[in-house]
Structure formats: C-alpha cells, structure tokens
Design a protein around this nucleic acid. Structure first.
Lengths: 352, 352
DNA sequence: TGTTAGCACTCCACAACATCGAGTGCTAAT
DNA sequence: ATTAGCACTCGATGTTGTGGAGTGCTAACA
C-alpha cells in the first residue's frame, strides 16, 4: 500500500485537528474539515489504511484516531506550513527576547532565566535554556589580590567574559612584591591557554618556577581547576513547568510528579542538552517526539530544541517541552527566529 | 465550656491520629487509641464539645473529625512532645548537613541548594532555603583590573566574602598609573563603608575627586550600586516540590499547579522569608498553619521556618512546606538542631 | 452526675447497571 | 471508486442501591 497524496492530506487534517482539540478525531469531522469533498465513509476506508501503515492509531475500538509517533514524525518532517503570518506571530516573543538581550548588562544568568520565562509564558509550554559552555575557551585574565591579611582573592576571567572567584586563606602574610611576582608568573604562564590544557603537568612546572611560593601556587591552581570542573556540569534554567497542568494527558499524578522532578533535578536534563549539542543537524533545530527523547520521563512529551552559538565554541541550548500534540509550527518557527537572533548577536556586537 | 485536661488529651489523640492517617478520625478509634478507657459514646460527647469550641471540625455529617487550624495551633503551641528518640532521629539529617558545611569550599550557592535537597529528601516535604542577606555589611575590597585594552573588571568583596564582578567597557585605554590611582581612590574612599551608605552623595564626591576619570568612576559606582541592589532581592533555593504529590490533599490539579508555580517563581516566596526574618521570636522557629502563612497559595499548607545567623547581620531562612497534617514534632526538632548548628558555625570557624 | 449501651439516622464511597452517542467496519448500491 | 446505510462497539456519563463508618440522642446504669 502506498501513501498517496490523498492519504497525506487526510493524515495532515487529522493531525491538525488533534493538535487543536486533543480529542481523537473521527471520519465525519475530517469529511467536513477538509476541502477534499469526500464522505465520511471514504475517509473511514482511508483511515483504516493509514492505521495499517502505522501513522495513526485508535485509543479504543469506537473512538476516533490520534496520530502515532510515526505520524507526528512525518508531519514534522514534511508537512509543516511556514505561513508568513505564522512567522510574524512567532517574532512576537523574539522581540521580547531582543529587548532582554539589549539590556543585557553582564548578568548572563539573569538573562537566561528571563529568556526561559518569556518563552514559557508565550508558548504555554515548559522551557529550558542551557548556559553557553565555555568548552575550548581560553583563559583571558588571572589575578591574585589581597583582601585581608590572610585572605587572597583569585579572579579568573575566561574568554566570553565568564568570571570566577575563589577565596584563598593563606597561612602567612605575603608582601606586595611577592604578590606582584606571583601575578606576573601566573599571567605569563597561563594567559591565552585553553582552560582544558591547564593540567597537572602545567601545575608541576609552575610549582617549580614558583620556588618558595609553592603552597600558594598550588591553591591557585586548585581554583583554576575548580573553574574548569565547574563548567563541566552544564547550567540549565527552566521555566513554565506548571504549564504541564494545561494538558490533561500530562497531568495525572504519576506523570506530573515525574516531570516536575525532572525539571527540578536539572541534571536529569543534561542528557537532553548533550544530545542536542552533539547531534546537531543543518538547521540547528531538533524535534524529539515521544519516545525519541533521551530522557525517559518525557516519553509522553515532545521536545523541540535549538542550538545557539554566541561566539566560536560557546554553544547553548534552548528547549521547549510540551505534549505530543504540540504546536510544532509555532514552536519551530519561534525557535528558528530566536536562534538566528542569538547566532548573529555576537557578530553584531563585534562590529558595532 | 472549659477545655479541661481530658478534652486536651482527646484533642491530642485526634490530631496525632490524623497526622498519621490523613483520614478523619472517629470516636471509636479514639476510644481504643488512648489509655483513657472511655467508651466511644463518651468520646462522642467530648468531640461535640471540642467542635463547638472550634478545635476540630467535621468534613460532613457522618464523617469523623479533623483538626481545625485552631486545633493545630494549640497542638503546636502546647502539645509537642520532644522525645529523646525523636531528637536523635532528627539529627540524622543534621549530620548530613554538617558534612556538607564542612566540605564547604566557598560555593555558598551550591551548599544552600544541597541543604535544601537533603532536607527535602529526609522529610518528604518541600523545602526552601534563603541565602544569608548581606544587609548592613561593609565593603571590604574593591578593585579595578584591566582585562583587555578596552575592558575593565570590577571586583567587589563585601564582608562575609560575597564577591561580585562586573565588566566595564571603556571608550579609551587607561594606562597603568591611572588605574593604580583609581584603585587607591576607590579603596580609600569606600573601604569599610556599609554598602547601603554608598549613595548618590558619595558618588558625587568621588566624581569630583576623580577629575578627568569621571566616566569610569561613574561606571564603577554603577557596578557598586548593582551589587547593593542585587542583594535586595533575596536568593531562594527550593527543593522537593514534587513531594506535594505525596499528599492527596495538596495534589489536585488546581492546588498542585498553584504550588508548583509558587515554588518556581521564587519571588513569590520572598514575602514568606521576609515575614520570618522580621517576626523573629525567641526560639527562631516559626510555624504557620494553613491560612496563617503570608503566601495565599499556601493556604492549605503548613510552613515551618527557622532563621539562622551565620555572622552578625547575615541572616537567612530555612523553611519546610507540607500539608497541614505535617509531622510538626520531627520538623521542628530537625530545624531547631540545624539552626543551632548554623548559628554556631561562624564562631567555631573563627576560633579554630 | 458522669458514663455507657443501644439505636435510628446520615452521608459518602463504591459498585452495578442502564443509557447515550460518537465512531467504526462492512455491505450493497450507485 | 465512492457512498449511504446499518449493526455494532465501547467509553463517558448518569442513576440507583447497598454497606459501612460515624454521628447524635435517649435511656439505663453506677
């Protein structure tokens, strides 16, 4: 059996209708909904075929049909309609984002949180934003300052202006000259190095050069190591988790509790983010339908993600999590627009 | 009508039983549960009295009784049993906390998150931890560093070792000498000042002294202002929100959705934290029962909070949010122990 | 006078049952 | 190939009835 044009149209109609209502859709509905001018009986025959082909399924014998994962997949891959109006509608949220990014000060964290929130409010789905990873970035600046007689402050700036601080308690006071020497030593040796390359061998060499300042160097290196390590567990911000209650198919106790937990324990989401970052395709947009998602607790959800790249190597993820019957059109076009805005942001800034 | 000893005992028995089961408790149950050796009929009479006095109520005519807010209040105020075993049991979690605090490095944020989590896992309630506020604290260290030709890094350390950074873009490069001068100017003028006192008048004076470096001073002051402002909105960490699903009385759609939203939009919790911090009583522990809580969405919950003080003026809050029928005994003793641990932490550290 | 046994009554929870209607598959006619 | 018609299925919804837990009240008792 073939999936001819008419079957495709009917499938499309079924999915569209189901996305709107969330109810199984029957043959009579389709018979009127489409401009195919076919009777419900004909539709019924076609539907039986579509079911056999695996694109739709029946919750029970005398109910209408709902799309299967395979059906959604086909829809997402080949049937999305990029209407103009849709696009302009999508930019609604994107405009708000731009506003946020313009006022961006330097509080990356606050911006990302805000982004997640605006997206959630506008889409009525749960959202997720991962902070850009500094993977492969270079150390730009390192400094020791004396804050107190026995307290030193390590300040480390990585490319992309990620700033980290650590306090170090020293056993015996350092004089200004020593401090200056240490700073020069650190900067000449470490500046410009990708943070991943600052490893044990490097530390050993520095310790050697440091001579009597062994202990302090060791502590500073620990701080640097902490920075590197810290960036390994990705920061993820979520918003709109309560939106799941808007979709009955997700909000029974069992599922709701699992999902809420997943959103709270953000490390459960890293798998998703990682997957997105690695499996990047040409558009930078990925759609996970139902069981396709890497996170098992989301098997009844669909997830649409976009990978953005602020600067060379600074990649992050934006994700939207909702029910299978998600408004893919809107979500995808929103993410596409947002992604392109973010992608060009750095360049713009650079040339301004 | 008086609340005599027997009535108290019956009330206590009703509450205890209800805390365990969550079901309305009937006269027959109490008749056997207590060692009063009274028949169910007698209990019934007493229960009618207790209801008239407002300590208990009936969900419907032929159901048992459940405690009213007034009943819970009396229980919490006068009937808590601080068994020894209870206390030692409570310290279970506290020990984990101590562990966490010992490994504390300097990542306040991580510690607080972890604290919230451990508490949530152990108690089966939702938890909240607010970061200590720096209110009234003094500026300890301020420094400008050149990171790049046109980028300056402002590092500000406040007492209690809260560190803030801001990047400043400057129009034209500064030479080393100027930078040094600026640093001296900033430190001599600002060090030791309570951050609240760094206001417009101060800025004006500095601008005057700064002469041609007007612009940079202005920017630095903005950064300082940002630090102050930032500490106004309290940081709150929550955990175990999914625990609400363990209590049927909280987990219908309506309530669950509201609660989840409240926990996600943490600013909705600031009111609670503020209230706790201001209305501090002798024990430092506060119990809000049902409608007593400042947050309306929690009218079906009870909240127990503790105020801890790391250093002079650095106060924070720990809270446990659960159903009205919360295990007050356990929660309160856990929080008491934890609070005292935190309160003494700073002193210990200082003298070690 | 306080306590208790007994009893009629109330009301919810739960199960059994009936009903309705949307939707189907199939057949036969067009 | 399409469609009208029909018997059938099955969940959703509503009705009814029964059981049991619990009450309040009364009368008897210590």
């Amino acid at each position: 059996m073939e999936l001819d044009e008419r079957k495709r149209k009917i499938l499309q109609a079924i999915i569209r209708n189901y996305l709107e209502t969330g109810e199984p859709v029957g043959s009579r509905t389709i018979s009127k909904y489409t401009d195919l001018n076919l009777s419900s009986a004909t539709i019924r025959n076609e539907m039986a075929d579509l079911e056999e082909l695996g694109y739709i399924l029946q919750p029970h014998t005398s109910a209408g049909r709902i799309p299967s994962d395979k059906g959604y997949r086909l829809y997402v891959d080949t049937m999305l309609q990029e209407k103009e109006e849709q696009l302009s509608q999508a930019t609604q949220e994107v405009k708000e984002m731009q506003q946020i990014l313009l006022e961006k000060e330097d509080k990356m964290e606050a911006i990302l949180k805000q982004m997640a929130k605006v997206l959630a409010v506008n889409t009525n789905y749960a959202t997720l934003v991962s902070a850009p990873q500094v993977k492969g970035n270079k150390l730009k600046f390192i400094q020791l300052s004396r804050v107190d007689v026995r307290q030193l402050l390590t300040t480390i700036v990585v490319e992309g202006n990620v700033i980290k601080n650590t306090m170090i308690q020293v056993a015996e006071p350092l004089d200004d000259e020593t401090l200056l020497k240490l700073n020069i030593l650190l900067n000449t040796n470490l500046n410009g190095l990708p943070i991943e390359e600052i490893n044990l061998a490097m530390i050993a060499r520095l310790k050697h050069q440091a001579g009597i300042y062994n202990d302090i160097i060791a502590e500073v290196m620990d701080a640097v190591a902490a920075v590197i390590k810290e960036d390994e567990d990705i920061e993820i911000y979520t918003s709109g988790t309560n939106n799941i209650f808007k979709y009955p198919e997700l909000s029974d106790h069992q599922r709701a509790s699992e999902l809420i937990t997943t959103f709270e324990e953000k490390q459960l989401l890293t798998e998703l983010v990682q997957d997105t970052l690695t499996e990047e395709n040409s558009t930078g947009i990925q759609v996970y339908i139902g069981n396709e998602t890497p996170v098992k607790t989301m098997k009844d959800c669909s997830v649409v993600t976009a990978t953005y790249e602020l600067e060379e190597g600074m990649k992050g993820t934006i994700g939207i999590i909702g029910p299978r019957r998600m408004d893919y059109d809107k979500v995808i076009s929103t993410l596409k627009t947002l992604k392109s805005q973010l992608d060009t942001l750095y360049k713009k800034e650079d040339t301004q």
